[in-house]
């Protein structure tokens, strides 16, 4: 369980991507989380709110996009998904397969609320 250090890395990325005087406007940080990224989204969410509380980022929350574990069989060209990590093709039994996705852990977007949103 290393969600706290992962949350800290996300916080660092936000600090590096948003100008200092706009940090308080950050509302949503979008994070892609693959099935085999090794982190638990709920736990990451909890850690992020713990370390951002009472900072300019207090109003920011994480929004997750879950990415399934997907594998392509090079033998029969079929693509399959599972959440148990099997890479053997369930269609033809082929073992020459390539993992397409499921290991992501990536900050994709940061959404800010501007002055004009607040007035509206």
């Amino acid at each position: 369980m290393h969600e706290l250090s992962v949350a800290q890395s996300i916080l660092d990325i936000v600090h590096q991507s948003v100008p200092q005087d706009e940090l308080a406007d950050v509302r949503i940080v979008r994070v892609k989380v693959g099935t085999f990224s090794g982190v638990v989204a709920d736990s990451l969410d909890f850690c992020f709110s713990a370390i951002s509380a009472e900072t300019p980022l207090a109003k920011a929350r994480l929004e997750f996009e879950h990415i399934p574990f997907a594998v392509e069989c090079r033998q029969c060209q079929k693509t399959f998904e599972n959440d148990i990590g099997f890479v053997v093709c369930p269609v033809c039994g082929g073992v020459d397969t390539a993992v397409l996705s499921g290991r992501e852990l990536q900050v994709t977007e940061i959404e800010l609320e501007n002055e004009k949103d607040k007035i509206a």
Binding site: E109, I110, N114
Partner: peptide, 8 residues
């Protein structure tokens, strides 16, 4: 609302 694309 504005969005900063990060992809990191």
């Amino acid at each position: 609302m504005s969005i900063i694309t990060v992809e990191r």
